[in-house]
Every structure is written in C-alpha cells, then in structure tokens.
Design a protein around this nucleic acid. Structure first.
Lengths: 251, 251
DNA sequence: CGGCTCGTTGAAGAAAATCAACTCGAGTGG
DNA sequence: CCACTCGAGTTGATTTTCTTCAACGAGCCG
C-alpha cells in the first residue's frame, strides 16, 4: 500500500488535462505543446541561461533553486501540476528548475507566450495574476525565513502542500514527493531539524507519518495554528507597531 | 560634521529631479504630481488596503514591511530616491510603507499608471524591467535569509546600500538612514546581533563607524568577499549539485 | 542639566547546526 | 525467497550561533 516507486507522484495533477480550452486561461497556450517526460532529478532549465521557454507542469513536481557558493542551495519554490514557471519577463532564468519526481512538462517559446498575452485582452489579467501570485509567494517565504522557527516553518509548508498533493478520496493524507533535503533547502533548515520537527509534530498528535513520503494530517486546525501566521490583529500587535516607531493610528 | 538632524537624509536623491522628461522613463509619469512631505515614521500606505496609488520616492528612504503575529515585523525592502513602489498589479498592497527618514514622495493613481503603460510601447518594457528587478531582489533576499550568517547578511546589506547612499564627494562614506531595528527586521536578526556584527567588522578593519548613521567602508573588496555570494562556479559547487541528486552534467 | 531614546556590550540561555551512530526500507543478486 | 547493500532518514550528543535579558553609555532635546 505504501510501496511508492519513482513514478508514484503523478497524483493531484488531474485537473490539468481537463482544463477548459477557452483562451481565457493561460493553460490553453500550452494546449498544442507535446508533454516531455523528465526523469526525477533532471534539470529543465538553468539559472542564468537566456529564458527561451515558458513551462507548465503537466504531472509531477518541480523545484526551482539557486546555488550559492560553498555548496549552499536554496529552493525558492516548488511547482505542481498545472503551475506555470519561467513566465517572468526576465531576460535570463533566475533559477535552475529540476524535476523532484518524474515529471511531464510542456514548453512554449517565451516570445510566443508573451506575444499571445500582449495580443489578448483576456489573457493579460491572467498573466498579471500569475505574476502577483508569484510575488506574493516570495513575500510569504521571506516572512517564513525571517521570523518563523522550525516548527512554524514545517507547519506552513504542510499547509501549503496540502491542497496540492492531498489524495482525493483520502482526505488528510498528504503525499510528500520531495525528500528531506529538498524540504530543508526550501525552509532554510537542515535535514536533521526537518526530521526532528516532523517527529515532534507526530509526538503531539498533529500528524502521523506513514512511510517516508506520506503524512496523515490528524488535526488540521491545530496545524494551521502552529504556522505562526497572525490571523487576528490583536493588541500585542499594535504595541509592537508603536515600539517600532510607527505613528500609524491603527489602534 | 556628524550632527545629523531628522532631516539630514535627503542625500543621494539628486538624480530624480533632473530625470529626462522623455516618456521612455517611468519617472516621467510622476512628473506632474506634486511631491508630498512625509515625516519620518509616518505610513504612506497599508498592507491589505486596495492598491489605489503608485508611489515614487523623490527624497528620503521608505521601508516596505509586513507585520505578522506577536509583534514580529519583516521589512521586505527599502526604497530610495527615484524608486517606484506599489506598482505591482496586485489588487491590494502587499506591504505597509513607512517613511524611514523625512521623505518627499509623489503618487499617481494606479489605473492611470497602468493605463499609461498599457498605452505606450516604450513604457511597457520599463515596467517589465521594474517588476523583474523587484522579483530578483526578492529572490536575493530569500537566499540571504535562508543561507547567510549574521556577518554575511550585514555585508550584503552594506554592499547593497552603498550605491544608494554613498556620499558623492566622499566615496566610501555611507549614510545609514535606518535605525538598528529597521536593519534587524530587514536582515532577519536582532538589534543586538546587528550591533555586534558591525563592531566585529570594525574590529577587523573592514569598516569604521562614524556616529550612529554613518559608516566608512575601508576595504570594499573585503566587504564584498564577506557577502557570501558565490562568484566563481567552482568544483565544490559541482560536488554539491551531485550530492543533491541533480544529474546535471555540468562538471 | 536631566531625561530619554537609541545603541552597545556582557552574560546566560535557547534553538538549530554539526557530527556521529544507528535504523529502515527499497533494490539487487544469489 | 532471502540475505545483502546502499542510500535516505532518524535519533542522540555536542557545539555553534544567535537570541534574550540586563546593564551601561552616548548623543539629543527640552
């Protein structure tokens, strides 16, 4: 039941093929492109290379990463089935993209992509939406890396992962396609800390690991609370604002 | 000589007024707007509010920040004279903007701004360039927060700050308009660690603090090396790529 | 001058990294 | 089918780094 082969992570990408062919949707631009198969670990594009193509994940998971000196790697984002990456109008890729699991991806030329968007009043808002979503994610990640502790980081990751890899028909059971090193490099921690933190969450009965690559969420509410996101604008919050020298009259 | 009042941070914004009135330049869109004076600490716009305006810093420094629960603040970016912010096509602001020092800013309506860009083949690339620069900065910040230690963070900050606030006529002398708490919240550390790290850099003769808000860079080359950025794509680097499971045939 | 904020420094503590041993499970080959 | 191997993951012990708490000092303003 838990025997997962290399190819076992094709789940949750179901909606992509069924996407409506209306040209309102950025996905439709990839409709004609033949999906390529990318084996796990193989690179799709390289940081610094001229950004010739825009990609869509049809199946599997892709990591976007940067390498900085002395073997340090930062994963800036994961891309799941349906996600489009490389669409930012940069001249060169800001990241190396690699398949986390065996993937199928589609690609189209960047000029074609941008041209279609420029020529369509319907696509432009969708494109802007994509850019916004990406920036928002980047900001969220900055907050995570800047202010959250190990447990909050991991919980945030799981909550973010849930809608992407939760098994339909088995709610609460997450697939975790990436290995511990990937998670660590995404969350700015070490594999040991990732491992320990998962164990700790298991100990307090918030999740139950089922093999290396599956995790059952026992108490989603609790998991959300452990993310360290302020949902309530409370008094404490205001005090700090003042302490930081803001004269904002919010309180 | 080092007596800096509240208003003393208007430097380095010299080029803005003199910007060419050609419509090639995004700045020209702000040409008609009257500069508003914003006292230090005052907010310019709020996170979550409808993004009604786009702003340009005419003079001074602005911080873009997010508050998350329990008094935690993250500064996602500083904006200096000439910089445009709030231009991202989000419906709502992703950050609260506050004046670090007394500022003069210009604002124009978001719809006007985006309309002008949509209507001009010359402005669109400039706008795209702005978005790219911002994303690139966000990625750089993720790397910093994810993998750099205190010293590397501070050095990176100083190197980034140098071209913005270095006093013309006195090369090597940086103005540091923001206080220690701002720097700490930008770099994901505490004021104490910021202070200690500056002292340490001073001890090894890389910089010399001159008062609270000025810093002389003694050895810029050394400072750059201490940033922890990989400039060389060295062997070590490749080994790690392999270790991380990449089959990339770079080596 | 005195009070105040901001910044610095020291000492103690906590969190995560590092180093190292061990476990588990998947794949291999007899 | 079972033993073996190897890599990934876990767990423990130790160390490092940064935070936290606390005291002190310097500049600024009335």
């Amino acid at each position: 039941m838990l025997m997962l082969g290399k190819n076992a992570f094709a789940v949750a990408g179901l909606a992509v093929e069924a996407a409506p062919p209306r040209r309102l949707c950025l996905s439709s631009l990839f409709g004609t492109a033949l999906p390529e198969t990318i084996p796990a670990g193989k690179a799709i594009c390289w940081e610094g290379d001229p950004a010739g193509c825009v990609f869509q994940v049809a199946e599997g998971v892709v990591r976007l990463q940067r390498i900085i000196g002395e073997g340090r790697r930062v994963i800036t984002a994961f891309q799941y089935a349906g996600d489009i990456f490389g669409a930012f109008p940069q001249r060169n890729y800001l990241f190396t993209a690699e398949a986390v699991s065996d993937c199928r991806i589609r690609r189209i030329g960047r000029n074609l992509f941008l041209g279609e968007i420029a020529g369509s009043d319907a696509l432009r808002p969708a494109y802007m939406g994509l850019l916004c979503k990406e920036t928002e994610a980047a900001h969220e990640q900055m907050v995570l890396l800047s202010k959250k502790n190990a447990q909050e980081r991991l919980c945030s990751f799981l909550i973010e992962l849930a809608p992407r890899t939760e098994m339909s028909g088995n709610p609460g059971l997450l697939q975790i396609p990436m290995n511990r090193q990937d998670i660590a490099d995404y969350l700015g921690m070490t594999i040991e800390t990732v491992s320990r933190t998962i164990s700790k969450l298991a100990a307090i009965q918030v999740v139950v690991p089922e093999g290396r690559h599956n995790l059952r969420i026992v108490c989603r509410q609790r998991l959300k609370e452990l993310c360290g996101n302020a949902d309530a604008f409370n008094l404490e919050n205001c005090h700090r604002l003042v302490r930081h020298g803001s004269t904002a009259d919010l309180c």
